[in-house]
Design a protein around this nucleic acid. Sequence first.
DNA 1: GGTAGTGTTGATACAATATCTCAATATATG
DNA 2: CATATATTGAGATATTGTATCAACACTACC
Lengths: 152, 152
Amino acid sequence: MSRLLKQQQALLPAPAHELAEQMAEAGYKVTQPRLAVLRAAVALDKAFTVHELEQWLLERNESPGIASIFRTVKLLCDLELFQRIHGLEDCHRYSISGGHAHHLICVSCGALKSFDNCGLRDLITTLEQQTGYHINDHVLELFGHCPRCLTV
Amino acid sequence: MSRLLKQQQALLPAPAHELAEQMAEAGYKVTQPRLAVLRAAVALDKAFTVHELEQWLLERNESPGIASIFRTVKLLCDLELFQRIHGLEDCHRYSISGGHAHHLICVSCGALKSFDNCGLRDLITTLEQQTGYHINDHVLELFGHCPRCLTV
DNA sequence: GGTAGTGTTGATACAATATCTCAATATATG
DNA sequence: CATATATTGAGATATTGTATCAACACTACC
């Protein structure tokens, strides 16, 4: 098994209670509305929108106010437990982060795989030398079709 | 001079009349509002927002309605003459595309360099083999400070 | 147990980005 | 010129998100 595959398997999303724990460690209270958002995000198991979180919760009659959902998503992004997804058309999706930066996203169903070995170091070094820029961050997202959607 | 540097120098943004020509070739009329947007985008010479286009044009008393600016930006994105920039915080900036996908952006002043040799082929092949996904698109943006902003 | 201080919530107002609607206008074609 | 089509501008609407603020909940202290 290659090193890259091992890494990917290590990047499974954390379960809700683990995310809750990290929130508590960061000094935030693990309230019912926040837990609800965590449960929804874990259950959706893909790149989700705030609207999708709300729908999932409404169907189970446990949706907090929409403001609290937005607030919780923002908080979790700040804590780097969630991450904004840069889509091809819009950037209104989020994922459970796992602390890693990059995603492979199915444009058909939203299924998402995370990875962290983006292999951009050489490109960054080259560009820095050629442009004089100091590069300290990047966005990388890959899009395609997951095996399931390829067979449908 | 390396091959990569040559490529970058070839990726200078097209002048307004050239963009207008491509619009005409695609079957769209080159109207005054559309030309105004092209001029503003070329003049701004960086990753710009629709609001910045409008401001530039208002200062010269030649701003079309905001709806037409949005429409023109969308049209130019569809024609791949403009391209949406995926920023670290939001995704509301655009650039003149040159038909190429990637940018190096100064987070301080918005200065922008484009390049097309992203060197992701190996990563994409590896990920396809390991995940079974078919990857057919990607977003890559690099962020840092340009030489000018580094000295200030 | 009561009280003060802090954090959180939910409803609502607001903001920013973008699209839709539709009558008026401009442009191209016969 | 007449007609058909494309485009515009104004304003309404949609979507995504943040700000405000009173009510509530939890914690620590007395």
